[in-house]
Write a protein that binds this DNA or RNA. Structure first.
Lengths: 123, 123
DNA sequence: TCGAGACATCGACATTCGTCGATGTCTACT
DNA sequence: AGTAGACATCGACGAATGTCGATGTCTCGA
């Protein structure tokens, strides 16, 4: 509850002398919790090796890849690859499916598209 | 070079025993330097306060904002805001223009769109 | 039942990051 | 000239990140 008629802030600004510009148009601003959610997903994309993992996974024949195929082309050890995969899975970008001994990864349908649209105006 | 009629890898794989899946389809993989460039731009978006800065700047009246208007709604001190702005400018996402005492920031036209398209298939 | 292998998790380490007080630089006004 | 104010830069601090060896867990075949 904000109370006391502070519903909109749009005209509440009393410009006395020289405030340089408009005070951020009140509540159109991205909320902190929403920003944290978005930032977490972009953080998953903020590592070159994770982008290469996405590139490999999304371009593979069956749109599925297992860890053993990622370690070599990336030049990373297995624990590191697993670590990156976990981050991408936790971000909702990759899907993990365990079949027998191997774990297969695929891009979650629409995940990257939804992230991309959040960058565009009017999202 | 894969060479020797490996136009498609589908059947080129000589499964001797149990290789789990295809070996990452060779050179379709995102190059490391290119991945680093992309990752650096996503890293600029991987902080909630920077996303809120982008939200404020892109929704302001004149599509321009100065530092003094950002500090208060973000709840951050001025050096911190300047730091985030520098990161966004260095990433090529924001444009800085100094007019008199104030510095005005605006979103570089096409910057976010180009980043968004890099997320989509066939980019 | 046992061992090999694929993958996840843990612990450690160097590096990077976000934040802010202190200080520097530059512009405009008196 | 001198002062006030907006913004950048510096230095420091705790927290988070990327990497990997060591180890754990689970599945499959012998």
């Amino acid at each position: 509850m904000s109370a006391t008629t502070t519903d909109t802030v749009e005209l509440g600004l009393q410009i006395t002398d020289e405030t340089c510009c408009v005070p951020a148009s009140g509540d159109k601003v991205l909320q902190l919790t929403e920003a944290e959610l978005l930032a977490a997903r972009f953080k998953a994309l903020s590592d070159p090796n994770r982008l290469r993992i996405l590139s490999i996974v999304s371009s593979s024949e069956e749109l599925e890849t297992c860890v053993c195929d990622l370690s070599e082309p990336l030049g990373l050890k297995q624990p590191t690859v697993s670590h990156h995969l976990k981050i991408l899975v936790d971000a909702g970008i990759l899907h993990r499916e365990k079949r027998g001994v191997w774990a297969y990864f695929s891009v979650v349908p629409g995940a990257l598209e939804s992230l991309a649209s959040s960058l565009l105006p009017k999202n």
